[in-house]
Each structure stands twice: as C-alpha cells, then as structure tokens.
C-alpha cells in the first residue's frame, strides 16, 4: 500500500454459502480519488461496500482500510472517518430531520451544532423541523447524504446516491461531491446511471457476478478496450467519399444527403482528421463520438459491442 492509498484489496473474495459474491478482487483507492463501482444488480457492489465498512468478513484475501483490517476495534477508531449512504436509506418516521441528524452526529461523536449547516448544504434547511414521514424519497436521500457528510469524512461510500433525485438535485449532488473530492475526500460510489457518472469520476471498476472485469480511468479503459469511434462529418459528399479507398479500415455510412458517419479505431482518429482537413474541402461540421462509460461497461461485461 502506498502512503496515499486509503483502501487496498488483495485477492478479496466473499462467499455466501456456496455462492461466490466477490471473486479475488485486487483494487487500490488513493486519497482524493473518486471511484465508481459499476455493475448489474448482484454484481457484488454492495457486498464490496459492506466489506469496506467492516460489516462483513472476507472469505479469502486481504482488505485494508486506513491501513488496517476493518474488524474489531478498527470500527471505534476509524468508522467516524467514513461517511456512508446506503442504497435504501430509511429513518425512524416519527423523528424530524434535524433530530435524526443530531442522533447520528452524537453517534459519530461530532458536534450537533454542525447539523443545521449539513441540512442547509443538501437543501433541507427549511425541512429540518418536519417529521420524516412527511419527507419525499428525494428528501430522505438528501438527509442520508447530510448524515454521510457529518464530521467531514476522509472517505465517502455512497451506494446509489442519485436514487430518487431529480436531474437538478443530481447535478447539485455531483457538485457537492466535487467540493469534497477537491478537499481530499476519497469517494467510492456505486451507480446504474452510467451516462451521468462519467464526468465526475476518476476511475471506474466494472464488476460482473463478483468478478472484476475492468478497472481504470475512462481513457485507460477506452484504450484497453480499443472500441471504434465515430466521426460525423457534414460537408461535400463527393469530396468525402474517397476516404474509404484511401484509408484502410474505415467504414463510411451516409446518414442523409449532407452527413457521413465514419467508423474507425482510436489510433485512426488523427489520420482521418488529417485526411479530412487535406481532402475534405469545405467542412460544415465535424463531431467525434468516443465510447462512453456505458459502451465500455457493456464491453467489459462481455457484451462486445465494437462501436458506440
């Protein structure tokens, strides 16, 4: 483990009876990193999160969080350094939002005077006095996030944090996470909303039936996958048509009378653009579509789509 790594997993496995939930996972997460766990339901995301929190014991392999195995007395020492938002957040319905947050603050050993600020940070300043049974799903999710942020944790573990949030709230949540990440907080989040995750994460970890199928930055995953890219060009059709003859491995498809869609491998991107600049005449528009996290996810899951 390097000095900057908060989490290190070496050959981590977890079995429930004869069912393998996680199979020999190797992973490291450094300070200030935002890592997304992506995978279908049952891929092992929540099991991995529970192991990180010391709520489950590994069947094999090693797990270190803050340099120690998350068992026994680790909890009293380190659990306050973690903020956790479970997938299905639920509170005692008779409490008010502020009462619930104060309870969690006391449990975490942080000043309860900070609770109003946390509520305000998640847009619940006016709802603190309301009973939780009157909270919508989105409000409960925001309250859950407020409790996770109590005590400025060094590690945020968020299981499906955008569930129940409308697009505006999702954007605000990601903005908030950026603030914490910039302040050095490491973030591990699981999500199904792949398209919205992409701009907010440093690395993605693709899980399938407990196995690690791919891991790295989006660029590294793209490079390793070698998925085709699409270049859409609007301009003179006559001048664009020779490209398939002059550059090998390029596929061209006319979309309408004005646009041609070229499909090529990533390392052909620059030669294609050079060719277009030299031979394409007057180009009205050029659009490059790289493989998205969703495409990469499908690729690493084994659903080998060659083009976005």
């Amino acid at each position: 483990m390097t000095a900057t790594e908060l989490i290190e997993l070496n050959g981590l496995s977890k079995n429930f009876g004869c069912q393998c939930a996680l199979d020999r996972i190797d992973l490291g997460v450094g300070r200030g990193e935002c890592v997304a766990l992506v995978g279908h339901n049952g891929a092992g995301k929540t099991t991995l999160i529970k192991l990180l929190l010391g709520l489950l014991e590994p069947s094999a392999g090693e797990i270190r969080v803050f340099g120690d195995r998350p068992i026994g007395r680790w909890r009293e020492k380190n659990a306050r350094r973690i903020g956790f938002l479970p997938e299905a957040i639920s509170f005692q319905q008779q409490m008010t939002g502020l009462e619930a947050l104060r309870f969690f603050a006391r449990l975490k050993g942080v000043p309860t005077t900070d609770c109003e600020n946390r509520l305000a940070a998640v847009g619940l300043a006016d709802a603190g006095g309301k009973r939780l049974k009157a909270y919508s799903k989105g409000m409960r999710q925001r309250l859950g996030l407020a409790q996770a942020l109590l005590g400025n944790p060094e590690l945020l573990v968020l299981d499906e944090p955008t569930t129940g949030l409308d697009p505006d709230l999702r954007r605000e949540l990601y903005q908030l996470l950026h603030v914490y990440r910039n302040a050095g907080t490491s973030i591990i989040l699981s999500s199904h909303a792949l398209s919205e995750l992409e701009p907010h994460i440093d690395r993605a970890v693709v899980l399938k039936q407990g196995r690690l199928m791919g891991e790295g930055t989006i660029d590294a995953l793209r490079e390793k996958a070698g998925l085709s890219i699409r270049i859409r060009v609007r301009g003179d059709q006559q001048r664009l048509s020779p490209i398939t003859d002059q550059l090998t491995g390029i596929q061209a498809r006319a979309i309408n009378g004005q646009t041609v869609e070229l499909t090529c491998l990533p390392d052909q991107k620059v030669p294609v653009i050079r060719w277009l600049t030299a031979n394409g005449g007057q180009l009205d528009d050029l659009e490059i579509e790289l493989p998205t996290l969703e495409h990469l996810y499908r690729f690493y899951r084994g659903e080998r789509e060659q083009t976005p």
Binding site: R75, N78, A79, I82, F84, P86, I89, S90, F104, L107
Partner: peptide
C-alpha cells in the same frame, strides 16, 4: 427490515 440496521452498524460502535 426497515433498512436502518446497515447504516447504524456503519457507525463507530460494536
């Protein structure tokens, strides 16, 4: 069943 146990046990207590 209410889904509160997981969160509570993630706090600093045995």
């Amino acid at each position: 069943e209410r889904g509160t146990l997981l969160l509570l046990l993630s706090y600093p207590m045995r």
